[in-house]
Write a protein that binds this DNA or RNA. Structure first.
Lengths: 169, 169
DNA sequence: AATGAAATCCGACGCGA
DNA sequence: TCGCGTCGGATTTCATT
């Protein structure tokens, strides 16, 4: 596939992405109105963004609290050398695990989990704890989540980023 | 609003949520076909899910790597007693910050950040570090993300969850 | 700009807790 | 009875050529 060398998103692409990240169900008509472009032109750009994989899909955002799972926690696992829990598919057995990340550092795995209650969370932690040392951080509140992805270039300059927008490779 | 007492999602609701989390752009026709319900009935359920806030919105899922931001990290901040960085809106100044969570424990804030490169990430960490002690975990890979929310009840039983599906209101 | 398809809205009927 | 799903048809809106 063309994993490398994305076709360089321009300003219009980013405007489209911003709109679609805020509301994936916009019609091409409405979208074209906001972007100030013709409908077919917008449709063609969206098609290209989908095909190149920049737009990976469209998902309904479900509010966990409203769906009976108000509790959230981050769990870092420090695994025995060889077997790392979740080595492969162990995460499939736990619907409560919403994210799995492999980390650098001594705690090799970062989980984000959801639970219906403190009791539920307690049971979950107990089960996961069997696989190795762990560190748990219960989330009290979430000021920001699902922040849309925005372009990283241009006006705001991060010290050290002198032309390195090309991701490496 | 009715933050409390969600109308109890039934199996059909969860099937709808599963489908819409996988593809938010399904037509009601297609959706009704998969759920084995009539289109108007499905539309009515979806409308109710939206109104009750269970469905918070619909978002295009943008692949960060394809959009020029392949790097990701978790950053825990340990803040000075009074001012906690991001006390309010400081996160708005950093588009790289995609999530902000308040934690229990000694490190009061958990950030998830995206960056275009290691150099970019380095600069970002340097800037955030001015606000207090921090602990950074660079993500090497992400086996699971955006796992859809699923019902927590029933067949799989977590020790300690004996009827406590009700979230504690 | 025009065509064909699909969604939304409406009222009425049947079924089951 | 009341809630919920189904059916049929009219109108608007969208996607595509």
């Amino acid at each position: 596939m063309n994993t490398s060398r994305s076709p360089e998103l321009d300003d219009v692409d980013w405007k489209i992405l911003a709109e679609l990240q805020a509301d994936a169900r916009l019609s091409f008509n409405e979208l074209s109105r906001r972007i100030h472009l013709s409908a077919p032109a917008v449709a063609e750009r969206v098609r290209r963004l989908e095909e190149s994989g920049v737009i990976a899909g469209y998902a309904a955002r479900v509010a966990p609290a409203k769906a009976g799972q108000p509790m959230m926690a981050f769990i870092q696992l420090r695994c025995k050398l060889s077997r790392c829990l979740l080595k492969t598919a162990a995460a499939d057995d736990f619907p409560e695990i919403t994210e799995v990340h492999k980390l650098s550092g001594e705690h090799c795995t970062m989980l984000k989990v959801r639970a219906a209650s403190l009791v539920h969370l307690e049971g979950l932690i107990e089960q996961l704890g069997e696989h190795g040392e762990m560190r748990t951080h219960i989330v009290l509140s979430t000021p920001y989540e699902d922040r849309p992805l925005t372009p990283v270039t241009a006006d705001r300059d991060v010290s050290g980023a002198d032309g390195w927008t090309g991701t490496g490779r």
